[in-house]
């Protein structure tokens, strides 16, 4: 397991894609926070709007980490070196977390600079970082299932951005309400706001994190299953 982790680390550092991602994320978040930091009904949500943009970069990193190897054929070498496939996936997941967490933490921190500190703000900031990590893992899981990088990224982006819009067209309003609360887009809205209250929000922050975690876990579990059963 340690060998797998170190091998992944080496691949990441020598590749050119991955380091660009946290950088891009940091720029997006910071720019969003500073440029948009004006008066609003909900300044925290406005500052953290960068989370909603930056999540695309993080998801792409998660996808690229695995689907990139399928694209170049490197995956066969990787699996030859680490024959226990779940170890490979676990190493990648751990690495992604270790990579995204500090970058997201720093970027979110800069984005909310200058806002009056408080429990709501701290909660929103921490939740944003956790959310971004989970989105990365979601990307990794989807990549393990579909293997083609462009398709995987398309699916993840659809999940992140388009689901609420599609659900709004469902005929049954009860189903609509239930499913609407299960989308990552609703969750990120609930997570990055400081106006607490069940009236304004369709989800409590804890439930929102649960929703996103369930998506990421589901994708990873399916990915692990497929990776385990299928030829590379």
């Amino acid at each position: 397991m340690r060998a797998a982790w170190r091998a992944e680390w080496a691949k990441l550092l020598t590749g050119r894609a991955a380091p660009a991602v946290p950088l891009g994320l940091a720029v997006l978040l910071t720019a969003g926070g500073v440029a948009l930091g004006r008066d609003s009904v909900d300044p925290v949500q406005l500052r953290l709007l960068g989370v909603r943009l930056g999540q695309a970069a993080v998801a792409a990193a998660g996808v690229q980490l695995l689907a990139g190897e399928y694209g170049s054929g490197l995956i066969r070498t990787s699996l030859l070196a680490v024959p226990r496939r779940l170890d490979l996936l676990a190493a990648k997941a751990a690495l992604l977390t270790a990579f995204v967490a500090p970058a997201a933490g720093l970027a979110v921190g800069v984005a909310v600079i200058g806002l009056p500190p408080g429990g709501a703000l701290a909660r929103a900031a921490v939740a944003s970082v956790v959310y971004l990590i989970l989105v990365g893992l979601l990307g990794l899981g989807v990549a393990a299932v579909v293997r083609n990088s462009a398709t995987a990224v398309g699916i993840v982006l659809a999940l992140l951005y388009l689901m609420p819009m599609v659900l709004r067209m469902l005929p049954d309003p009860d189903w609509q309400r239930v499913l609407y609360r299960l989308t990552p887009a609703t969750a990120v809205q609930a997570l990055t706001t400081s106006t607490a209250g069940p009236v304004a929000l369709p989800l409590s922050p804890a439930a929102a994190l649960g929703v996103v975690a369930a998506w990421a876990a589901g994708a990873l579990a399916l990915g692990a299953f497929v990776l385990h059963r299928r030829d590379a």
């Binding site: 943009l53 689907a67 990088s149």
Partner: peptide, 18 residues
């Protein structure tokens, strides 16, 4: 492919939604 898909989505689809 991946950066391209992300870039086009961010440019074309994200602004109207946001």
């Amino acid at each position: 492919a991946v950066p391209a898909v992300v870039a086009v989505t961010a440019l074309l689809l994200a602004p109207p939604i946001l």
